[in-house]
Design a protein around this nucleic acid. Structure first.
Lengths: 273, 273
DNA sequence: CGTTCTATTGACTCGATTCAAACTAAGTGG
DNA sequence: CCACTTAGTTTGAATCGAGTCAATAGAACG
C-alpha cells in the first residue's frame, strides 16, 4: 500500500480531470486537514446535522449518499472524491453520507477550496470539473436504473467503481477491496437483497468476477464491460487517464472463488501520515 | 400570457435561488440572445454536435436530456432553466437535448455567463446554486426511479414539474400546458408506454388530475403530493419562493375530463419580443 | 461459544412488459 | 371538405423479472 499525505489523494483526483502545474501542486500541498476513521455503515454526515465549515475528502474506502427514508443509495465515492464539495456553496444536506466498509477521511475547511480556486484558475477549473463529473455520474445512474435489468445494473456499478479506482491509481490488476454487503449492492442497484444475491451468483457463474472475503477480482473485464454496455466517457476523465481503465488488462490469474484474498491491497490499513 | 424580454426568464429563475439586487438585475438585462423555435421531439443539441459557444435558455415549453441509445430521459427542464449551463466549463455532451412539445429558446453566449459571474458575486452564487439544484434534481430522480412504484414515480414527476413551474410564476391555478406524449412520460419514468397509459388512467380515476388536449389540471394537489411522497426541499428554492408551491391552493374547478381546454394558458404562443 | 450479521435457497406472488389489435385524433393533400 | 396517412391512445391476454416471505446455513465478532 502506497503511503502518502492526505493532499496527494486530492491532487491525484484533480489530475484526472485537468493538468496541474507544479505551482498548483504546491498550493494543494498546503491543504489543512483532520483525519478521521469510520466503521462500516457509520454516518459521516446526517441530514439533520448543522451546517459544517469543512468538506470531507475520502482517503481510503468507500462512501455513499443514502436517502434517509428509502435507503436508496444515490452515489458511491472512491478515494480522492470530495462527496460534499457542494456544501462550499450551499450547506444544505438532503441525504446521509454513509461509510460502505471501513473508511479514512480528511476533513478540509471550505476556506481551503475557496482559496485555491481564487489563487489558481487551473485548480478552480479542476474543482468545477470534478463537480460536473459527479453530476454526470448521477445522470448516468438515472439511465442505469431506468434502462438496464438488474444484472446489467450491477455489472455497470462494478465497471464504474473499477474505472474510477484505476483513474486514481488503485485497483491495479483488476483486484481490489470491496467491503460492501450484498444489501449495500442492492440499495445501490435498487433491487432487493435477495435478488442482489442471485445477481452476484450469476456474475460469478459467468466467470466475470470473483467476490469473496471483501475482495473483488475481475476475471473477465471485457465481458463485464460488454454486459454493462459500459461507456466511460461520462466520467469526464482526461484521455491519458481514461486509457488506464482499459490498457494493460490481462485476465487476473484464476483461482478458486474461495481462495485466500490477496495481501497486496488489503484494507483497511493506516494512512501513512 | 405575460410577455417580456428573454432575460426576464433568466432573472426569474435566478431569483428563485438567491436574492438579486437592482444592479444584478441590470446586469442580467444586458443579456445578448438569439431566439429560436423548435417543434416537439426536435433535437436542440446532439451528442455528436461540435462544441458550441452558447448556452440554451429555455423561454417557453419543456426540454429534456435524453440518452441516445436507451431513450431514457434523465432530466426535464422548464422555462428559466439553462439545461446546458455546464458547457460553459466543459463543452462535452453525453446525451441529446430534446424538445417535449413546441419550445422557444434563447441562445446566450458563454461569455455572458462568465461576465456576470465576474461582475457580481451574487449572480455568480446564483448560477452555482441553479447548477447545484440541477444536480440535486438528478439525485432525486435516482431515488425516484429506485424506490417508488410506477404510479408514485409519475405522480412525483408531475409534482416536481408543477412546483418548478410555480417557482417561476407559471402553473397558476394548478393548470398548465403539458404537451408530452404518454411515451414521453414513460421515457421519463422508466416504464413502458403501455404502462404509462395505465398509470395516467389510474391518476385520473383517483381524481388527482385531468390531462387532456395537452393541458394538465391538478384537481387534488395534496393527494398527488401524498401519493408521490413529494418533498420539495431538494429543489433548493428560497423559502419565500417554495411557499408559492403550496400557498393559495384550492381545488381547480372540476370539469369533465374531455372538456375544452382553458384559453388562459394555451401553448404555444408567441414570445412578446 | 453463543450472538449477530450476512449469504443462500425455494416457493409463491405481483407489478410491469410484451405483443397484438383496435381505436382516436391530428394532419396532409387531392 | 373528405379520404388518406400517421401519430398517439386504449384494451386484453400471456409472460417474465423481480419482490416477498420464510427458513437455513455460514461468517464474523466479542
Amino acid at each position: 500500500m502506497q503511503t502518502g499525505f492526505a493532499f496527494t489523494k486530492l491532487a491525484d483526483r484533480l489530475a484526472t480531470v485537468a493538468e496541474l502545474s507544479a505551482d498548483d501542486f504546491d498550493l494543494v500541498a498546503k491543504m489543512p486537514s483532520t483525519i478521521s476513521h469510520f466503521s462500516s455503515h457509520d454516518h459521516i454526515l446526517r441530514t439533520e446535522d448543522p451546517p459544517s465549515s469543512c468538506c470531507c475528502l475520502l482517503l481510503q474506502g468507500y462512501l455513499c449518499w443514502q436517502e434517509q427514508t428509502s435507503g436508496q443509495i444515490t452515489s458511491i465515492h472512491v478515494p480522492g472524491d470530495v462527496p460534499d464539495l457542494h456544501t462550499v456553496v450551499s450547506p444544505k444536506l438532503h441525504a446521509n453520507l454513509t461509510a460502505l466498509g471501513p473508511v479514512v477521511v480528511a476533513f478540509v475547511p471550505h476556506a481551503f477550496f475557496r482559496e485555491i480556486s481564487v489563487r489558481s484558475p487551473d485548480l478552480c477549473r479542476a474543482l468545477q470539473l470534478v463537480s460536473l463529473a459527479d453530476a454526470a455520474c448521477l445522470r448516468n445512474w438515472v439511465s442505469n436504473l431506468g434502462s438496464r435489468d438488474s444484472l446489467a445494473r450491477a455489472a455497470h456499478l462494478i465497471c464504474e467503481i473499477t474505472f474510477r479506482l484505476r483513474a486514481v491509481g488503485l485497483a491495479k490488476e483488476y483486484r481490489f477491496p470491496l467491503p460492501f454487503t450484498q444489501s449495500d449492492l442492492a440499495a445501490a442497484c435498487a433491487i432487493s437483497a435477495v435478488h442482489a444475491n442471485r445477481v452476484t451468483q450469476e456474475l460469478r457463474k459467468r466467470r466475470t468476477l470473483q467476490w469473496h472475503a471483501r475482495t473483488l477480482t475481475i476475471t473477465d473485464w471485457h465481458a463485464l464491460v460488454r454486459l454493462a454496455s459500459f461507456e466511460p466517457d461520462y466520467l469526464g476523465l482526461r484521455d491519458s487517464v481514461a486509457r488506464r481503465g482499459y490498457s494493460s488488462y490481462s485476465p487476473a490469474p484464476t483461482e478458486p472463488d474461495r481462495a485466500a484474498p490477496s495481501h497486496r491491497t488489503s484494507m483497511p490499513g493506516r494512512l501513512g501520515l
